[in-house]
Design a protein around this nucleic acid. Sequence first.
DNA 1: GTGAAAGCGCTAACAC
DNA 2: GTGTTAGCGCTTTCAC
Lengths: 336, 336
Amino acid sequence: MGRAGKHPTISDVAERAGVSVPTVSRVLTGAARVSPAKREQVEAAIAELRFRPSAAARVLVSRKSRTIGVITGNTSRYGYAETIRGIEIAARAEGYTVMITVVESPDEDEVDRAVSATLTHALAGVVVLKFDPPGVAALQRLGDELPVVALSGTREAGVPQAVLDEAAAAEELTDHLLGLGHATVHHVRVPPSRRVDGRTTGWKRALRKAHAPVPPVFDATWDPRSGVAIGRALAADPDVTAVFCGNDEIAMGVMRGVAEAGKRVPEDLSVAGFDDHPLAELWSPPLTTAQQDFAGLGGRGFGLLLQAIDGTSDRRYSSERPKLVFRESTAAPKRR
Amino acid sequence: MGRAGKHPTISDVAERAGVSVPTVSRVLTGAARVSPAKREQVEAAIAELRFRPSAAARVLVSRKSRTIGVITGNTSRYGYAETIRGIEIAARAEGYTVMITVVESPDEDEVDRAVSATLTHALAGVVVLKFDPPGVAALQRLGDELPVVALSGTREAGVPQAVLDEAAAAEELTDHLLGLGHATVHHVRVPPSRRVDGRTTGWKRALRKAHAPVPPVFDATWDPRSGVAIGRALAADPDVTAVFCGNDEIAMGVMRGVAEAGKRVPEDLSVAGFDDHPLAELWSPPLTTAQQDFAGLGGRGFGLLLQAIDGTSDRRYSSERPKLVFRESTAAPKRR
DNA sequence: GTGAAAGCGCTAACAC
DNA sequence: GTGTTAGCGCTTTCAC
């Protein structure tokens, strides 16, 4: 039967349809009008041959790619995974494919490798998840060789970006705790991407505004278990009545530590999280938190990137504010 | 200053280094020996020009790609996200880049689009996450045009695959519950990828082996909240003393429903999950479950794919058994 | 509208 | 070892 297994090329299609190669190309790209008759012949030939154009050849000659890159720090943490999902869905809807590049540390070599991979592949553009130091470093190294959009929780100068206004939401959440009658609110921080962290900033702003004391910050890692020891320490301090955690998973760790220390949430201690993790509402007690639309963030980020690629618009910024969700993990403090 | 912004090509490098284009190519690929002197000149020119070879041109002529595809159903669910992370880490270590293609439904159009994207990009190979019907459909449609590896929880004929032996672990977990003195074990199933689901199969096998009655299965969705109503129903039935859930997130939903119905775990009801989700050990009470090494599964899958690509080996199968983790959500039933 | 010719940036094959 | 030549599969001029 001849060429079993071999992929047909555009000239196979042209031959079969009885037209020239450029005509097939025109049908494929829609770049120029083709007579209905020839168009039909070409489409028939494509279907019969199961022809698929080679992305490599197209990119090589047209210098236009339908693939975008995503540079990210960790693909499986909740916020990252959801953001990537949002990017992918938006990209897919526009016919783009997504290439993932993970950067685990801000080391020069690591970042260089990631940036090289991106540049080598002649991508249409890149979305950088700038939630952590590796993301920040990658962004800097990327230069202006191709369209780039950054995604994060804090506005910053430079490239176009989509953000979730963490500071505003953190401030509002702290206001809520203060409004319940707590003298102050303690804070457990997740690893910040830079010196200034939106969640911490908003928390501090609310305390200052209310003239409440600003207690020292507790630092957790990304591992929820790191919250357990912190929770125990917090429970042991009678001055602590309310805690705002950098994310829900840390809050869950903290609550476990509080429980191990024999205290109850929210009776002895109010705990608030951040993100609205899918398990936050199932936790006991259900967690008060700020709902972050990560998938939406990813979608807006891709939208911005698309505009940068097409040059159709010069919008460079998209911000959204997380919505607070009040559940049962926060309450008024006990009277003393 | 001339060509600002334009990417240098291999001939720019050749010119600058005073050698021919193929010599630069030899330095780049290491395909043939180059004299130390010329090699040095070439490397200097590459560094000065910040040259990066075009992946598109390379793929076009060599027909070898350093990009693999991952076809998956949902990138943000725990097991999927971890598996993808494992694939990416293993791929990165070998210099491969990962392209993600999401298939949300087993519809012909959806699957065709995903397969087309894969084929168009001339990938080195594809890893299919065959945990759900879309994955199964994609696998069938992929044909034998390029190396493919499937990842799942149940062994099956066909392409090379890496599996986590869910049935064995589920059986062992059910044995554990039965051994505690429960007359039987109820089961809440997550959406199965095919008619036969490893977790359900193992559960049933254990019950049959023990001559215990096989109660009707409860069907949950992937949303942990779907477990809540089921938990309430289970709590209302005095015959139910032990429940084995298809995954930890569903188990958490079930436990929430049980709590809402005023019953306690494990005193009134034992609940076991599956996966060892990062929050399982922080839950109250900490969850008895089967630890699945999803990242390891991804890594083994990539290893199998690499062998299929190189043809270095004809290993077609890699299986691992989840390890049971006994925590406090399971206990002996109350005496009646 | 359509075809002929050129060439994207690289590697493969073949001389020397 | 090294250079010359050819060509991967497409899109892009440019005639007609």
